[in-house]
Computed example of a mutant assay.
Amino acid sequence: MAQGPAEDEGEEHRTDGLDLARRAARSLAAAGGEPARRRPGRRPTGAPKAGRRGRPDDRDPQLLDGSLSRLVSDRGWELDLRVHGIFGRWPTLVGEEIAAHSTPETFDDGRLVLRTDSTAWATQLRLLTPQLIARLADELGAGTVASIEVLGPHGPSWRKGPRSVRDGRGPRDTYG
């Protein structure tokens, strides 16, 4: 009969089985194998319970994009950001030529007020209002801009200067 490693080293057989466990571990290590896997559902003593594993929460570092999105939605700033998108991205929304001759002035309750640099451009933009509303709905969301009011250029003020009238409204044959 072949002798085991414990018998070669002079170890005696122990009744608690510790010698058998040591022999099995040595032979496994010599063969380069892996130790046996634990049965599923069993956890070693001292291991954290399933409900206490480290999961991310609000105290952990967060990505800036997710944090800003959550802040915007919590504060209800979605519409405000879309509106400011109109002012900041006006040339890309309507095109360089229209943006060169018009600027958005105000936005309130779905009504966008545009100011043009000439009466000809004011007339042109009034004709293009349905297309502008559709384009802004595509870019900013449906219903963000419900109507557009187009204003012509500001006329000169007759309240000061050489052509001012002290107690009158000024000349009425120009700009009005």
Rank of each mutant, 00 (worst) to 15 (best):
M1Q: 14
W158H: 15
G170K: 00
V113M: 03
D74R: 12
A120N: 09
L114R: 00
A24L: 13
A50H: 10
G152S: 11
G54D: 13
R55C: 02
P130L: 02
G141M: 14
L20C: 06
L18C: 11
P162A: 08
R43K: 08
D16W: 06
D109Q: 13
D8H: 10
S102Q: 02
L68M: 04
R26N: 10
G54V: 12
E12Y: 11
P104N: 03
S118N: 07
D8V: 14
R38L: 14
A6N: 15
G51Q: 15
R26M: 13
R70Y: 10
G51N: 12
L136H: 05
R37F: 00
V83K: 00
H84V: 09
S67V: 14
G141W: 09
A137M: 04
V165N: 14
R38T: 13
G143Y: 01
G51K: 13
G10C: 09
T123F: 09
I98F: 09
L128I: 01
G143D: 10
L28M: 14
S69N: 15
K49D: 09
D138G: 09
R42I: 07
D80G: 11
L140D: 11
D117A: 09
A137K: 01
T45I: 07
F107Q: 00
E105R: 14
A6W: 08
G46A: 00
E78S: 15
R135L: 00
R37H: 04
F107C: 01
G85P: 04
K49M: 08
T116P: 05
E11M: 13
V165L: 15
D8E: 11
R126D: 02
T123A: 15
R163P: 09
P56L: 06
R166F: 06
P48L: 10
T45W: 14
G141D: 06
R135W: 00
D173H: 14
V94C: 07
A122R: 00
A100F: 05
G54L: 11
S164W: 07
R82G: 08
T92Q: 15
F87D: 09
R89C: 14
G32E: 05
R126C: 05
L125C: 04
E12T: 12
G85F: 01
G110D: 01
G66Y: 05
G51C: 08
L64M: 10
T129M: 01
L136R: 03
A50P: 05
R169G: 07
L81C: 03
G168I: 11
A122P: 01
S27P: 03
G170C: 01
R82W: 10
T174K: 13
E97N: 14
G155R: 15
G170L: 01
R172W: 03
S164Q: 11
R22S: 01
V113S: 03
R52N: 07
P104A: 10
E34V: 12
P104H: 03
L128P: 00
P48A: 10
R169S: 12
Q124L: 06
H13S: 12
D138Q: 11
R43N: 06
L68R: 08
R38N: 09
L64H: 06
D16L: 03
L64V: 13
G32N: 04
W90M: 07
L136I: 05
V113R: 02
A142P: 05
R37E: 01
H13F: 08
L112K: 04
R82V: 02
P153T: 03
W90C: 07
D109F: 07
R52A: 07
I133H: 01
L20P: 04
D80I: 06
S118H: 10
